[in-house]
Amino acid sequence: MTTPNLNEPVPTPIARVLLSSVIAAVLFTLICGLAYPLLTTLAGNVLFPTQAHGSLIRQNGKVIGSALIGQNFTAPKYLHGRPSQTNKTDGSGPQPYNAENSGASNWGPTNAKLSDAVKARVAAFRAENGLSATAPVPVDMVTASASGLDPDISVAGALAQVGRIATARTLTPAQVETTIRAHITRRSLGVLGEERVNVLSVNLALDSLK
């Protein structure tokens, strides 16, 4: 007669293992797939309602854009944003600030295409803003970002456009500069990021000037 080994673990019935697995799957689905998203969505809507709904900008009750996505302003009377490399997903050509295909050119610093593009943008920026051939040009005004959707530009990039905007709107440069400086976003906590200007917000403020 064989003596049973009391130290040998008793095999767990397969039905019990399956039941435990199903319970764990259901529990984690409820917590991670339902409770957590609902909790974070509720907290976002209560604590940060504007940001939770896309930081939308409205005029006369109509949504005209978002503070998070740039728009392609080309008229002389408007502040212009950064270059954008976005294209339509159907391959129909460049569509600046097309949120359907956010991205960059992926040209490296040694790529001749990048160098040529920057040189062309520098020349164009100087020409349209009446700057001399040796005037410094803010780097963000001649380079595209990784997203292609930047809504902000540097303060220097905005101030470099004051003369053109003032002429197009028959305003004084001081009026335009004051409007720009009134919309400067400071560094977060005083140290994070750089001072910047939201292009759409400034253009709306310029349109409201008399």
Rank of each mutant, 00 (worst) to 15 (best):
T2E: 12
T3G: 00
T3K: 03
T3F: 02
L6I: 13
L6Q: 07
N7I: 10
N7F: 12
E8M: 00
E8P: 00
P9D: 07
P9Y: 07
V10Y: 05
I14Y: 04
A15D: 00
L18R: 05
L18G: 09
L18V: 11
L18I: 11
S20L: 13
A25T: 14
A25W: 07
F28T: 10
T29K: 00
I31Q: 05
I31D: 06
I31N: 05
L34Y: 15
L34E: 06
A35T: 06
A35G: 06
Y36F: 14
Y36C: 09
P37C: 10
T41H: 14
N45W: 04
P49S: 07
G54R: 11
S55Q: 08
I57T: 11
I57F: 04
R58H: 13
R58D: 06
R58N: 10
N60D: 15
N60H: 12
A67Y: 10
L68Q: 12
F73V: 04
A75R: 06
K77C: 02
K77F: 02
L79A: 09
L79P: 07
L79K: 07
L79Y: 07
R82N: 07
S84A: 09
T86G: 05
T86C: 08
K88E: 12
K88A: 13
P94I: 02
P96R: 01
P96H: 01
Y97E: 08
Y97M: 05
E100I: 02
N101D: 13
S102P: 03
G103D: 11
A104R: 11
S105V: 01
S105H: 05
N106K: 08
W107L: 04
T110E: 14
N111E: 11
N111S: 13
A112S: 15
K113D: 13
K113M: 03
L114W: 05
D116C: 03
D116L: 04
V122G: 05
V122R: 07
A124K: 13
R126I: 09
R126W: 05
A127P: 07
E128S: 12
N129I: 09
N129T: 12
S132N: 14
S132L: 10
T134W: 00
A135R: 04
V137L: 03
M141L: 10
T143Y: 08
S145L: 03
S145G: 15
S145Y: 08
P151R: 08
P151C: 11
G157C: 08
L159I: 09
A160N: 04
V162W: 01
G163V: 10
G163R: 14
R164Q: 06
P173G: 10
A174I: 12
E177F: 04
I180C: 05
H183N: 15
H183L: 06
T185V: 12
G193A: 11
G193Y: 09
E194A: 14
V202A: 06
L204A: 03
L204R: 12
D207W: 08
D207Y: 03
S208E: 09
